[in-house]
Design a protein around this nucleic acid. Structure first.
Length: 482
RNA sequence: GGCGCCAUGGUGUAAUUGGUUAACACGCCGCCCUCUCAAGGCGGAGAGUUCGGGUUCGAUCCCCGAUGGCGCUACCA
């Protein structure tokens, strides 16, 4: 049996913004791939754009990854602290004649680009510095003239690579400009730093967004001239908004943390994200819910689709309800406690009672938020009455009076079970010649503040006898609404 | 503009890689259940595979073209 070396992959975000859904999905795929193969996931922060990068964004990205449960094995490495490597790599390219100094200034380049565009020519760098004799270039450099380093793209031919998702992709070299490797301030551009790092970190697979496919030939060219083996490239289709344009703030939340704040369970989000642009194959086509272990076991690059995916909030919401329902109350509790803390809500019931109520409520929760909003009455005696619910079921003074009577009946009855509470209520309705539904609906509002709740008698048992009696007895004091 | 990639119901995806009444899930509609709302059960509408040409006995699947969307086109990543 030949041993295949364990794969090494990376997630390499640029800290110029929070972890957005596209980045999160790329991170997830890398994570799944590494975990599936028993490989290594490296986290690398691409912060060579000092202007736009910030410490805060780095923290935001790490927070997002932790929330999603995506752990990494090495790093985070910061490119800003690896500048020497990039310089050495540029030197190597310079020495072998695959790169050259460029003395054109930014202003000159912009001007020429504008001219070319106006004349209808492609705005590519005209390679004028490529012909400067090396001795002259060295002299000018020594004299202190600022210069960038550009890669010398071969004149003819094509640069091709085999993509694990897209198959063979090729570009004519004539279409690739002599891109900048090192800026005049000595800071590398993305094109240089990615390949220097990807080689140095011995990465075997590059799984990243399809927006990088056009950059790939520039990188392949460097691998070739540096004599390094090519990794396997796997470009993942992009995630679009519902209008099929690139996902942006316009479409609502774009940072994964915003989804945490919306009360989404991390595993639900992960499951949803995994299925955006990937399927485990036709033998699982009828399945939508995949545990993390399933995902890890099933993940493979061949399941990645080539077309862009559209982010569908309804589907996410569905996953969320499924996960909340499937979780044990014990597992849900810490997540709910976070919601309570965020809302400044303090429950005043025992942990045991809280767990019972969570168990009762979780099948109908849409979001973790519900536990801190519409479900408050189950966890505290301080809660609001939904005015619409009061208007619908408690506007009648007579109904309220019946609820007070009901409170008395419960107080007189030693038993307090779902069956007994229902029996008592129906008996009162019969005697009073009113419909049981009137009492049931009214009691629901009096007990929970809401028109919508689980089965009333289950609610009563969850709330406990004393509380039920107290709330029903206070029915007449519930604020009236028109 | 140039170059590249993609294209199956509203959405995500299937279709033993040329032979199916084009499947599943979300969403939507209706019915049942019922103390409300979800859930659940049952049923339904919704694509003939972007369009046009080929190749073939036969194309969702192969080829060409068009259209549309997206990406790249910086001393951003």
């Amino acid at each position: 049996m030949t041993s295949v070396p364990a794969p090494r992959v990376r997630f390499a975000p640029s800290p110029t913004g929070y972890l957005h859904v596209g980045g999160a999905r790329t991170a997830l795929f890398n994570w799944l791939f590494a975990r599936h193969a028993g490989g290594t996931l490296i986290l690398r922060i691409e912060d060579t754009d000092f202007e736009r990068s910030s410490e805060e964004m780095v923290e935001g990205i790490l927070t997002g990854m932790r929330w999603l449960g995506l752990n990494w094995d090495e790093g985070p490495f910061f490119q800003s602290r690896r500048l020497d490597l990039y310089k050495q790599t540029a030197e190597k390219l310079l020495a072998s004649g695959h790169a050259y100094y460029c003395f054109c200034t930014k202003a000159e380049l912009e001007q020429r680009r504008a001219q070319a565009t106006a004349a209808g020519r492609p705005p590519m760098y005209d390679r004028r510095c490529r012909n400067i004799a090396p001795a002259d270039a060295t002299a000018r450099k020594a004299a202190g003239e600022p210069s960038a380093v550009r890669f010398a793209v071969p004149d003819g031919g094509v640069t091709a690579f085999e993509d694990a998702v897209f198959g063979r992709v090729e570009f004519a070299n004539a279409e690739i400009e002599d891109f900048v490797l090192l800026r005049s301030d000595g800071v590398p551009t993305y094109h240089l730093s990615v390949v220097a790092d990807d080689i140095d970190m011995r990465l075997t697979h590059i799984i990243r967004g399809a927006d990088h496919i056009s950059n790939t030939p520039k990188q392949v060219l460097q691998y070739q001239t540096l004599g390094a083996a090519l990794p396997v490239f796997a470009h993942v289709p992009l995630i679009l908004g519902p209008d099929k344009t690139r996902l942006s703030k316009r479409h609502g939340a774009t940072s994964v943390i915003a989804y945490k704040e919306m009360g989404i369970v991390p595993e639900a989000f992960r499951n949803f994200l995994a299925l955006l642009g990937w399927t485990p194959g036709s033998e699982h086509k009828d399945q939508e819910i995949f545990s993390s272990d399933d995902l890890i076991r099933l993940f493979s690059l061949d399941g990645i689709s080539k077309s862009n995916a559209v982010f569908n909030n309804d589907k996410l919401a569905w996953f969320n309800t499924e996960y909340i329902r499937a979780y044990d109350a014990e597992k849900l509790l810490p997540l709910i406690q976070e919601e309570w803390a965020a809302a400044g809500f303090v429950p005043n019931r025992s942990e045991q009672d809280i767990l019972v109520s969570i168990g009762l409520l979780k099948p109908r929760a849409r979001s973790l938020k519900d536990f801190a909003t519409t479900f408050r009455a189950y966890f505290s005696d301080t809660f609001d009455f939904d005015p619409a619910a009061v208007a619908k079921f408690l506007k009648d003074g007579a109904t309220r009076a019946f609820l007070v009577q009901l409170a008395q009946r419960y107080a007189e009855t030693p038993e307090f079970t779902e069956a007994s509470t229902e029996q008592t209520l129906r008996a009162l309705a019969d005697e009073s010649q009113i419909k049981a539904g009137v009492l049931i609906n009214g009691a629901r509002v009096a007990l929970t503040g809401q028109a919508v709740a689980p089965s009333l008698f289950a609610v009563m048992v969850a709330l406990g006898k004393d509380r039920v009696i107290a709330r029903l007895a206070a029915a007449e004091a519930i604020p009236r609404t028109e």
